[in-house]
Write a protein that binds this DNA or RNA. Structure first.
Length: 479
RNA sequence: GGCGGCAUCGUCUAGCCUGGUCUAGGACACAGCCCUCUCAAGGCUGCGACACGGGUUCAAAUCCCGUUGCCGCUACCA
């Protein structure tokens, strides 16, 4: 065991919302750091001045926090670290590892297209490397903007040992001299990434495997800088149900959407952890501590996974059922307010918590809560047409309901046990099946065929409201 | 096209390194049954996979080679 202090990082670029695949990458970085008592660092990769926007950094950070992925350091912004990249570039200039390139992006794109048509190599042809010193000086004097390219070897192999994929090897001649400093003065991705990973002492680079072909380029930069590269772990991709990269068409892709739909952070974390990682016994449900203790990069799979919303839904319901009514009520506050079940800023009453407790096993999402408990909380209810037809517009219902009223009135305690006993006796006396009474009563007092057990329902509503609703039902719906 | 990665139930996966205990285990979904005043929850049962083709071996999901398929990269984007 080395005593090396583990440091991981999540490095999103602020060019849009927080993608769910990115969130999983962040989670794995976080878990790996926690598991090894290391540090998790947040770095914002905003070197693309045209696509980056400050307005995206906030939702990214809020999303991470919501999921419980708090970072130990940062956020560092690459756009504010220009001096560091310039310094590294200076080193490479001094050691002769880089050269100026005066080709414009347009020229490059055109040449690339031509080469592609011809079916040839699309990489940079190294023409600026062949510029004579005089030519170079002239071009520079003319004020033409230029970029810096790194010299890459044209024979041999670039290999590295990936913690997940094993040994990965690239023929060097497939990697052409690439730009490390753009003509606007900003570092290109691979350069900024290398300089930062090294200056931030990142020990393990854990990222999506769409970066695997960037890795040899980065290794080349590390080598040129004479720095030992970190360890790499390339995570398999997360795909949509169509097997392609996750896209809007195949479901929600932004973390915010899951939050808005009523998923619990703990459930999403659990689900995402299992999308690519597993324990030997295939354990499905984890507490936060278990996740941090059991997570292990060596047990991350190699193949891409499909994001399965059905399983997430099940897991969310599972976590909801395991939550206390009081915690649930607090988590559900935004939805309760939106539904008018509580006023903005009000305390959540014990009555609401009790209602949540009664219906807890039926929620899949937090957003399901209001529509399930409203019949218990609101003053007036809507009668479902189908429920009315099925249970109230039947022969004998009037007799039964009218007959039960005095029984209800007589009930002093109005507890579920007492009520049940009274109801069963009533059925016995009348010689009718329990269903003949229970079903109409449920619909009469709740307007629905579904909900808590009738006696829990009656007890919760209380005598006055029960009687009142039965009267309404009798008057409006029963024939 | 070139380069790279990947391949076990519909989906997430265990097993593969260290061949036999695998008539391939778990979970979601689906179907049925049980429980039951409804809806759920829960329990039980069922359906369902080693991509294909060659080797190696007494024995292969596991090792080797090839084929196919899928995905990614191939930018002065990250």
């Amino acid at each position: 065991m080395s005593t090396e202090k583990i440091r991981t990082r999540f490095a999103p670029s602020p060019t849009g919302y927080l993608h769910i695949g990115g969130v999983r990458t962040a989670l794995y970085n976080y878990l790996f750091a926690k598991k090894n008592k290391g540090k998790f660092i947040l770095r914002i990769e905003d070197t693309d001045l045209t696509r980056s926007d400050e307005k995206f950094t906030r939702p990214i950070m809020e999303g991470l926090k919501w999921l419980g992925l708090d970072w130990d350091e940062g956020p560092y912004y690459q756009s504010k670290r220009k001096d560091i990249y310039d310094f590294a570039l200076k080193e490479l200039i001094d050691s002769g590892e880089v050269y100026r390139c005066f080709c414009t992006p347009e020229e490059l794109a055109q040449r690339r297209e031509e080469n592609r048509q011809k079916g040839g190599d699309t990489g940079y042809d190294g023409r600026c490397l062949r510029l004579t010193e005089d030519e170079q000086a002239d071009l520079e004097k003319s004020g033409l903007p230029y970029a810096w390219r790194i010299k890459t070897p044209d024979s041999g192999f670039i290999k590295f040992e990936d913690l997940i994929k094993g040994e990965v090897s690239f023929p060097a001649d497939t990697i052409h001299d690439f730009v490390i400093l753009k003509s606007d003065g900003m570092p290109a991705y691979n350069f900024a990434c290398v300089v930062d990973d090294s200056s931030m002492d990142i020990t393990h680079v854990i990222r999506g495997d769409d970066h695997i072909s960037n890795t040899p380029k980065q290794i080349l930069i590390f080598d040129a800088l004479k720095i030992k590269p970190p360890r790499f772990a390339h995570l398999p991709q997360v795909h949509g149900i169509d097997g392609k990269r996750l896209s809007k068409r195949t479901g929600a892709v932004s973390l915010a959407e899951y939050q808005e739909k009523g998923y619990l952070p703990a459930a999403l974390r659990n689900y995402l952890a299992l999308l690519g990682w597993s324990t030997e016994d295939s354990q499905q449900l984890f507490t936060e501590d278990e996740l941090e203790n059991k997570f292990d990069l060596s047990r991350v799979g190699k193949s891409a996974g499909v994001f399965d919303i059905e399983k997430l839904n099940w897991m969310n319901g599972k976590f909801i059922r395991d939550s206390s009514a009081s915690d649930l009520a607090n988590e559900a506050r935004p939805w309760l307010e939106a539904a008018g079940i509580i006023e903005k800023g009000d305390d959540i009453s014990d009555r609401i918590k009790k209602a949540i407790e009664l219906e807890k096993e039926k929620f899949m999402l937090l957003s399901d809560i209001p529509s399930k408990i409203d019949i218990l909380i609101k003053d007036s209810i809507l009668y479902d047409t189908k429920a009315v037809t099925k249970r109230l517009k039947k022969e004998g219902v009037r007799d039964v309901l009218e007959g039960i009223i005095p029984i209800l009135q007589k009930e002093q305690e109005f507890t579920k046990d007492g009520l049940e006993k009274a109801f069963r006796v009533f059925c016995e006396d009348k010689g009718i099946g329990a269903g003949k009474l229970f079903h109409p009563v449920r619909v009469a007092v709740s307007g629905r065929t579904t909900g808590p057990g009738v006696f829990e329902l009656l007890e919760f509503l209380g005598k006055d409201r029960v009687l009142e609703r039965i009267e309404v039902a009798l008057k409006e719906y029963v024939e």
